[in-house]
Write a protein that binds this DNA or RNA. Structure first.
Length: 743
DNA sequence: CTCCTTTGTCTTTTT
DNA sequence: GACAAAGGAG
């Protein structure tokens, strides 16, 4: 037997060899499920002679998809190009690109992200005179999205809503929203799945084409699929029934966006002949870490009972740092990482996990101060930044002028004297004639309907038409250069001459790089193709393994990853679990948080360090909290007493509350054992902090490396520092942003 | 029409 | 505390 099968345990082997018929694999954390899926695909191709073209493998994130493709190709020893290894969303996009004309869209549709959705909803509310203070756009978006997750169409929603004041309102907005999207030739994220299902249902011949093509289907992270996604795969799998789903109900953490744990139970109903295989041996973590995880998750009532076990050693005790504030927390993380490095670990072995993105800040500052390379994984999406969205809006306008949201976004960016008045005039024409926004500009300009802003609108229209002309002749990145040039966007940024503007230009350069690499890698590069790739990708940083850095990451994004040393930060009641879950009447909300904690703990291979802070700034207010109930569910004998902190006792009774025995005085709380720029910012009340370096000093910058301070100018609110860097030349920057460190 | 100030909202989590 | 949206002055 082949080596890649030989190394598997019996259950894993069974799963890999079971290629025909429906298969449900219940795989605990760290039980090698990714290996099973990839080896199974390799086995299909190599031993069973299945063509890669017949394979559809669905993963949850683009990163996971790329990784799976790489691993499969490594095993198969060939290009698995014919196989579709992708997320639900990108698989559906590919299908819709071929056939969406059959359901009334153009095949070059655009994809709306949450911001675009919000813009559309906002306009609808204005039109319907809905007070967005009482009914938030977000609320409508949530309602519509949940409906789509359950495949409830706007028509169905209207029927169900009748009689209910609130639901009727939602129904009206939902219906109008879908109309608007169609008019704009756009899909939102949920639509990608919903409309593909619609396509399959309306056109059985198309469905059959895909049933014939994808005879072998697998779905990773099955516990996180929603109803629409489940229907999508089961439609394709219906004919040949070769569908393998892998999931773990304990790791279901996306209920909030419609994930339906019921899909695990439903699987055996929809596919009655399904075989069920359990993978319960954990290869990842030490016994202690696994014990901790098991003791936490066992408090959930709604779960399939299972016993995850390991042959690994007990390993190190779990460390618990209970500190006074988030700055100390971050500094203790940093010093522990330094210890790990001294012991021979690499920075890549270490990751800081947290519940909310906001927590990354304090950590980030501590890493900067300590000069330790780090990388925020996920976080504020690259593609959500203003400058990126602006450039993309131009490209979208050029690609598909039916996209009103894009056109309206850039009509006055950079400023060209086309404000609200002009936009309203155009919109009136568009509404009257029931045409899209750009067409209304065109008509109005030709017929001279606009009066004063008419000339400016004409210029705008001509510019877009020129760019369209160019788009058909030059390459993508050349087009982007031309857009930046002709629109004056770049010039405006350059004129600003600030550090922020500089970063924006760098971000745009990054986008152009991305375009170049897209052009190099895509079979048939096109503007639409690029826009599509970009709209479905969560973060630009594709995990470069070559450099050494600490990962800062939310627990949600850490799912599916593993690290030797894991710091689980901010384990306090109110933060993790969040207050909303603690107060919720629905007890499954707290269970979801607990599953999240379980996911976090099981990311760790060797060392788990849990940190909690007594006080923390949340929304500009100081919150006082006790140690997370999830930490208290871990048996005390697995936790090493923290010698640096007198408050944490090893006796369970004392360790329970976690509050300081006496009320900490103000001085005590704000005592700063380590320098903290954030703390300084707060207490200097507007006064800029003194610099630790002077002209002629040698300083280090996080990104630019080391250099010599050439000049310091007191710019009022901040110092303007000019530095001659060894590698990147002279840069001018503001002291508070640059965070320079004397060396 | 644009710039500046003030006000209000937000913090779950992602495709 | 940070940022976007709304409102007011020029």
């Amino acid at each position: 037997m082949e080596a890649y099968i030989e190394i598997l345990n019996n259950m894993q082997k069974e799963a890999v060899l079971c290629t025909e018929g429906p298969l449900l694999i219940l795989a605990g954390a760290g039980s090698g499920k990714t290996r099973v899926i990839t080896n199974r695909i390799a086995y299909l191709i190599k031993e069973k002679g299945v063509s890669p073209k017949s394979i559809l493998a669905i993963t949850f994130t683009n990163k996971a998809a790329a990784e799976m493709r790489e691993r499969v190709e490594g095993l198969v020893g060939m290009d698995a190009g014919g196989a579709w290894i992708s997320t639900f969303h990108s698989a559906c996009v590919r299908i819709l690109r071929m056939y969406s004309h059959l359901i009334g869209y153009d095949n070059n549709f655009t994809i709306y992200d949450t911001d675009d959705q919000k813009t559309v909803i906002k306009n609808i509310c204005k039109k319907f005179e809905i007070d967005t203070k009482r009914f938030k756009e977000k609320w409508f978006m949530g309602q519509i999205s949940s409906a789509k997750d359950e495949l409830i169409s706007e028509g169905q929603f209207e029927l169900d809503a009748s009689g209910d004041f609130y639901l009727e309102k939602v129904a009206r907005v939902y219906t109008e929203y879908q109309k608007e999207l169609k008019r704009n030739n756009a899909f939102d994220f949920d639509d990608l799945i919903v409309k593909t299902v619609e396509l399959f249902k309306q056109h059985p011949d198309i469905l059959e084409r895909f049933q014939e093509r994808f005879r072998y289907i697998s779905v990773d992270e099955y516990q996180d699929t929603n109803t629409a996604q489940f229907v999508f795969v089961s439609l394709i799998a219906k004919k040949y029934q070769n569908i393998c789903v892998v999931g773990d109900d304990d790791q279901s953490i996306y209920k909030f966006r419609g994930a339906n744990i019921g899909n695990i139970l439903n699987f055996e109903k929809v596919f009655p002949k399904a075989k069920v295989i359990r993978l319960e041996q954990n290869y990842r973590s030490t016994q202690n870490i696994l014990d901790a995880a098991n003791n936490v998750i066992k408090n959930n009532k709604n779960r399939k009972a299972k016993k995850l076990w390991t042959e690994n050693d007990a390993g190190a005790m779990i460390k618990l740092f209970h500190v006074e504030n988030s700055y100390v927390e971050a500094d203790r993380v940093v010093s522990q990482i330094k210890e790990f490095v001294d012991e021979g670990y690499k920075l890549n072995d270490c990751a800081c996990l947290y519940r909310t993105n906001a927590q990354s800040r304090a950590l980030e500052e501590a890493f900067l101060r300590a000069n330790i390379p780090y990388k925020i994984v996920g976080g504020v999406n690259f593609y959500q930044r203003k400058e990126i969205k602006d450039v993309l809006a131009y490209l979208k306008t050029i690609d598909n002028a039916r996209d009103d949201v894009a056109v309206r976004r850039i009509i006055n960016v950079p400023k060209r004297g086309l404000g609200a008045a002009a936009v309203n005039a155009v919109q009136r024409v568009a509404d009257d004639r029931e045409i899209n926004f750009f067409a209304a500009i065109d008509d109005g300009v030709n017929e001279g309907l606009f009066g004063k802003p008419g000339e400016k609108l004409r210029e705008f229209r001509n510019m877009i038409e020129d760019l369209k002309e160019s788009a058909s002749q030059i390459s993508l990145h050349e087009l982007m250069d031309e857009v930046l040039e002709k629109t004056g966007y770049l010039k405006e940024l350059e004129a600003e001459n600030t550090v922020e503007a500089q970063t924006r230009i760098e971000n745009i350069d990054e986008l152009i790089n991305k375009a170049v690499s897209y052009e190099d890698s895509a079979d048939d590069p096109s503007l639409s193709g690029f826009l599509e790739e970009v709209s479905l990708i969560a973060d630009i940083d594709s995990w470069s393994a070559d450099s050494d850095y600490v990962s800062l990451i939310t627990v949600h994004s850490a799912k599916g990853l593993e690290f030797t040393n894991v710091f689980l930060c901010g384990m306090e009641d109110g933060l993790f679990p969040m207050n909303a879950a603690i107060c919720s009447e629905d007890e499954t909300d707290l269970e979801e948080e607990r599953r999240l904690a379980y996911v976090a703990i099981t990311r760790a291979k060797k060392n788990l360090i849990i940190t909690a802070s007594r006080m923390r700034m949340v929304r500009g207010e100081t919150m006082v909290s006790i140690i997370s109930r999830f930490v208290r569910e871990i048996p005390v004998d697995l936790i090493e007493p923290d010698r640096e902190n007198i408050y944490v006792a090893s006796k369970p009774s004392e360790y329970n509350g976690g509050l300081p025995s006496k009320r900490a005085s103000k001085e005590e709380f704000f005592r700063k054992p380590y320098a903290s720029s954030a703390a300084e910012k707060k207490f200097s009340s507007g006064e800029k902090a003194a610099l630790e370096y002077k002209e002629g000093d040698r300083v280090a910058h996080m990104k630019f490396g080391e250099g010599i301070v050439a000049k310091i100018v007191d710019g009022g609110r901040d110092y303007e520092v000019t530095v001659d860097f060894d590698d990147v030349g002279t840069k001018k920057m503001f002291a508070s942003f640059a965070k320079l460190k004397k060396v």
